[in-house]
């Protein structure tokens, strides 16, 4: 008797979740479609790249409980490699983006292999240190042009067909990349692989005792997260037509944490909402100079102390659904 009740309650909540997610996705897709008409398109594209970056970061913190404080290395490296591939090797943009993404995935595999045996704060420190190393590399390597960065990256013809120098085509292209990345991450989290990741987050020794090699799963998650962060960085290089030290700097690693925290860690839509908020904040507060950093810090502290679920997490908890 009780079992039947529980089962129907479970189906009920799955149904509710499906419905809520359908609505959320429809709202998001609609906003992506109308955004360039109400806001400055370049700004919206930047926001979409950061949103994807935050979703990639969230794959780790939200579903494996691994806090990376060096994720800028993946965003930045892919951005440089993509810019170099497009400008110097003359690759068309899709291939250049893929090359950048693969470079970050490879970096993720190496860093992950070294860091993944640690957890918690140790893991966080290791990621900081490695990202600093990548930063120094980007300062000194000849192809990144140090302080100048890579400027004037050609947008070119995507797949040889679509001219990305047309702002509307570029916008559609970025929107597709973002939605693809978003859905792919959602798919990964909801797959059997994602279920094991979540089980590792809840009780790692138990998952190991069931015969799963938890370390490999975590490494795969780390590499995937690095790859999606790379996808975001590479796309951003095409959008902004440059790659610079900003994208690989420590502050960027902090910003992605802030985005995810504000929006809601461990929610699909939280990082997107958070990214839009943080990017808007930077945009509209830019006139206040360094106060932006102070305000970001205050928001950080306030979220940690009193608003740990974030915006979407709080909404989802009130509506009793998973978003």
């Amino acid at each position: 008797m009780t079992a039947t009740v529980d089962a129907s309650a479970a189906t009920d909540s799955t149904g509710r979740n499906r419905k809520a997610n359908l609505i959320a996705f429809a709202v998001m897709a609609l906003l992506v479609a109308i955004a360039p008409f109400v806001a400055y398109p370049f700004f919206v594209m930047q926001a979409l790249c950061f949103a994807l970056f935050a979703c990639a970061f969230n794959l780790l913190i939200g579903y494996v409980n691994l806090l990376s404080l060096g994720h800028a290395m993946f965003l930045g490296l892919a951005s440089y490699v993509c810019a170099h591939a497009a400008k110097v090797w003359g690759l068309e943009p899709v291939s250049a983006i893929l090359v950048g993404t693969v470079a970050s995935a490879a970096l993720g595999l190496i860093v992950g292999a070294l860091a993944i045996r640690s957890s918690g704060i140790y893991f966080a420190m290791i990621t900081v240190a490695f990202s600093q190393m990548v930063y120094f590399f980007c300062v000194e390597a000849p192809f990144t042009h140090g302080e100048d960065g890579i400027q004037g990256v050609p947008q070119g013809l995507a797949l040889g067909l679509f001219s990305l120098s047309n702002p509307w085509i570029l916008y559609v292209f970025v929107a597709i990349v973002f939605l693809f990345g978003f859905l792919a991450i959602q798919r990964i989290v909801n797959s059997p692989f994602g279920e094991i990741l979540k089980a590792i987050r809840e009780n790692e020794p138990r998952v190991i005792s069931l015969g799963y090699r938890a370390t490999l799963y975590k490494l795969a998650a780390f590499t995937l997260s690095a790859a999606f962060a790379g996808l975001a960085g590479a796309t951003k290089a095409i959008v902004a037509q440059n790659a610079s030290l900003t994208d690989v700097a420590f502050a960027m690693s902090g910003e992605v944490v802030l985005m995810t925290l504000v929006g809601g860690m461990g929610t699909f839509y939280g990082p997107v909402v958070g990214a839009v908020i943080v990017v808007s904040m930077q945009n509209y507060l830019a006139q206040f100079g360094e106060w932006v950093t102070v305000i970001q810090g205050v928001v950080f502290v306030a979220c940690v102390l009193a608003f740990r679920r974030g915006i979407v997490g709080e909404l989802a908890a009130r509506a009793k659904v998973t978003l």
Binding site: N65, E290, T293, I295, G297, V298, V301
Partner: peptide
């Protein structure tokens, strides 16, 4: 991790 994030946010405030 929350304490770590808190000190991280404070660092931003002080440095900013």
């Amino acid at each position: 991790l929350y304490s770590l994030l808190l000190t991280f946010g404070l660092a931003l405030v002080f440095q900013g």
